[in-house]
Amino acid sequence: MQINVNLNGTEQSHDVEPRLLLVHYIRDVAGETGTHWGCDTSNCGACVVWLDDVPVKSCTVLAVMADKHRVTTIEGLAVGGVLDPVQQGFMECHGLQCGFCTPGMMMTARWLLDHNPNPSELEIREALSGQLCRCTGYHNIVKSVQWAAAHPATVGAST
């Protein structure tokens, strides 16, 4: 089936099987490998991307469901070579160790800050509660999001 997807602002057109999952479409067909494929069971959240500006687990969405829709991945976060504050925050606060969960964590964090610019620690933890860090680096992930909330100067994907 022919699908047309706006991936990070670029129109993409591909012929895909209906059973192809969005995460595999993004990585293997469109070639954007920043989105990670983790548990396959909508538990871990490594594959979180935005579908029409809403975070979803892309292992549990069909690629054909994204036809004529917008998909934003971690590659869409930095604008003009300038890191999004969330990305900067993960650098400043050592928010990643192995980095596997990082793209999904950042996509959810950016969405949270777009809707709640000054979240409490509890709100950050709640927002990220569907995502796993197997390094167990949650504390620094939360600090990274707090850093981004305190430094909103550069705005990336939200614009």
Binding site: G45, V48, P55, T60, E126, A127, G130
Partner: peptide, 9 residues
């Protein structure tokens, strides 16, 4: 029910 990301969909 599930988690915030699953509840979005």
């Amino acid at each position: 029910i599930a988690d915030p990301i699953v509840r979005n969909r």
